[in-house]
Amino acid sequence: MSDCGCHIEAKNAAERKTLRIVLLVNLGMFLVELGSGILAHSTALIADSLDMLADALVYSLSLYAVGRSPKQKTRAAALSGLFQMTLAVLILGDVIRRLVAGSAPEADWMMAIAFLGLVANGYCLYRIAKHRRGEVHMRASWIFTQNDVIANVSVIIAGGLVALLQSPYPDLIVGFGIASLVFWGGIRIVRDAKQAVMNTPVE
């Protein structure tokens, strides 16, 4: 095997290892945050858990794309973006439901679980950082992981405001903000995928 071939295999192996790790971390945190969000009546935590689920889907598609053709990698990235946008709409639906029906989020739970999520996503961001300038499927993973860190910090702030103001509105506002962040991340990836298609030589 040529040096070029060995380099490509090593790069693919490194990408697979990273994606498997962050996939497992996100699936675990999705279950933790979803259960905690339901118990704590927190829209922001539930929104963040769905963001984790969306990222797990992204990592799964990126893992599938490793070692495949540029066209397949681009399709995987575009599908990841569409998944993110769909889940953003679901998050927005939960925000509206709780706004109408009312909620009483538990601030302590919100902040504790969001901090745990921040640690998990900080680790994922560290793992993916070396691949952030790679091909489109890895760039998608980088963007979504950045969004996760922002979402975790936002939930912690929302929990503090809920405790300070004794109001559910910071929780709802952050839930809406996470939905917007996830939707915008999906748009960025779809655009990136379209640009990659334009730059891919015709076979």
Rank of each mutant, 00 (worst) to 15 (best):
L99N: 11
S103A: 06
A104H: 12
R133P: 04
R98L: 09
L161T: 02
G122H: 08
A112P: 00
G134P: 12
D108L: 06
L87I: 12
A129F: 05
L161V: 00
D94C: 15
L118E: 09
H137P: 05
N152S: 10
M111G: 08
Q146H: 12
A151F: 06
D148G: 15
L165D: 06
Q146A: 02
I96Y: 06
V95T: 02
A107D: 04
L82R: 12
L92K: 14
A112M: 14
A151S: 14
E106T: 11
A112G: 01
S141G: 06
V149I: 14
L125H: 09
V136C: 05
V149M: 13
F83S: 13
L118T: 00
R97T: 05
L116F: 10
S154H: 03
G122C: 15
W142P: 00
I143V: 15
R132A: 08
L87M: 10
N152H: 08
L87S: 04
I91V: 15
M85D: 09
R133Y: 10
A129R: 08
I91A: 15
M138F: 07
A120D: 00
L92M: 14
G122T: 09
P105L: 15
I113P: 04
H131L: 14
V100S: 07
S141P: 03
M110V: 06
I143M: 06
L82A: 11
A114W: 11
R98W: 06
G93A: 12
D108F: 09
A129V: 11
V162E: 06
V162T: 07
G134V: 04
A114H: 03
I91F: 01
I157E: 13
Q84N: 13
A140V: 01
G117T: 01
R139K: 12
A151L: 12
R133I: 05
R97W: 11
M138N: 15
A151R: 03
L82F: 05
A151M: 13
F144Y: 10
I96V: 13
N121L: 00
S103E: 09
V100R: 04
I143S: 09
M85G: 14
G93W: 03
G160P: 13
N121R: 04
Q146K: 14
V89M: 10
F144K: 04
F115N: 08
A114K: 02
P105V: 10
A140Q: 07
A101Q: 13
G160S: 11
R133W: 06
L164S: 10
L165G: 11
Y123S: 01
I91L: 15
V119C: 01
L161E: 13
A120H: 01
W109V: 10
L118Q: 04
A114N: 09
T86H: 02
A107F: 02
Q146L: 09
L116Y: 10
M138V: 06
Y123P: 00
M111C: 03
G81I: 05
S141L: 09
D94V: 15
